[in-house]
Design a protein around this nucleic acid. Structure first.
Length: 232
DNA sequence: GCATTAACCACAG
DNA sequence: CTGTGGTTAATGC
């Protein structure tokens, strides 16, 4: 029995290559991590954690991509798309006992579940580790503030342009990519209707700013797209 | 008034 | 699931 568990244990040193925070861990601390985390593979559309469920894990995304969704009074709202490597659910696990949003894989995703107690222990033990976690949280907060301004003060072309640029620059590092969401979900992300997204995408295509073929998008005129983003 | 923006409905591939 | 057309309400010259 002990042996099987032993075999299933993972080697966190692999992840060290990716996470700014775990780079700082000593051998002993890494051992704590090693013995208190499990990694899981998720298929597209599988739920990684669910709103209103009890949360007792910090989740580290090793690979893949995820959408964060919150049930609002009117409808479900896509809060953000997150790409590995990153931590998931820091605010939802540290902020309350219960998840305030759900995370769903949008492509095959590998995630590491870290026991909350052990994670807190590492925060106490290693200041450099904690520092990196704080940096990640701060970046997240700034991003949210920008997203808020973007949503509230821009019209839909600006909002859509902003999100297309983010897909290209932050998620795919390419001017050509497959949309990870259907039109309805894009509408939800941009806070508009599905029909409006359709119309605007075809319009952007007619203006030769982007090229669309189903979910495939190619940005042809990034300058123009950026102007749209600025103008709102 | 008239124009613009964008949501909602309906219908067709 | 998507794209398009018609309609409608709100807002701003």
């Amino acid at each position: 029995m002990e042996k099987i568990i032993e075999m299933k244990r993972l080697d966190c040193s692999v992840c060290i290559l990716k996470s700014e925070a775990t780079k700082n861990l000593s051998v002993g601390e890494l051992n704590i991590l090693n013995q208190n985390c499990v990694d899981v593979d998720f298929k597209k559309e599988e739920v990684i954690f669910k709103q209103d469920a009890l949360s007792s894990n910090i989740i580290y995304l090793q690979s893949g991509m995820v959408k964060l969704i919150m049930d609002g009074p009117q409808r479900k709202q896509i809060l953000k798309i997150k790409k590995a490597p990153c931590y998931l659910g820091l605010p939802t696990t540290m902020g309350d006992k219960i998840n305030h949003y759900s995370a769903i894989a949008i492509i095959p995703t590998r995630a590491c579940f870290i026991d909350l107690g052990s994670f807190k222990e590492l925060l106490r033990l290693n200041h450099d580790f904690s520092y990196e976690i704080i940096v990640e949280l701060c970046k997240n907060e700034l991003e949210q503030f920008h997203r808020c301004i973007n949503l509230v003060q821009k019209q839909i072309f600006g909002r859509l342009a902003n999100n297309l640029i983010q897909f290209s620059e932050d998620l795919f590092d390419s001017d050509e990519f497959d949309l990870p969401l259907n039109r309805n979900e894009i509408a939800n992300l941009v806070c508009t209707s599905r029909e409006t997204v359709s119309r605007m995408l075809t319009e952007l295509s007619e203006e030769k700013i982007i090229k669309i073929n189903g979910k495939k998008i190619k940005i042809l005129n990034k300058d123009m797209l950026k102007k749209l983003r600025e103008k709102g």
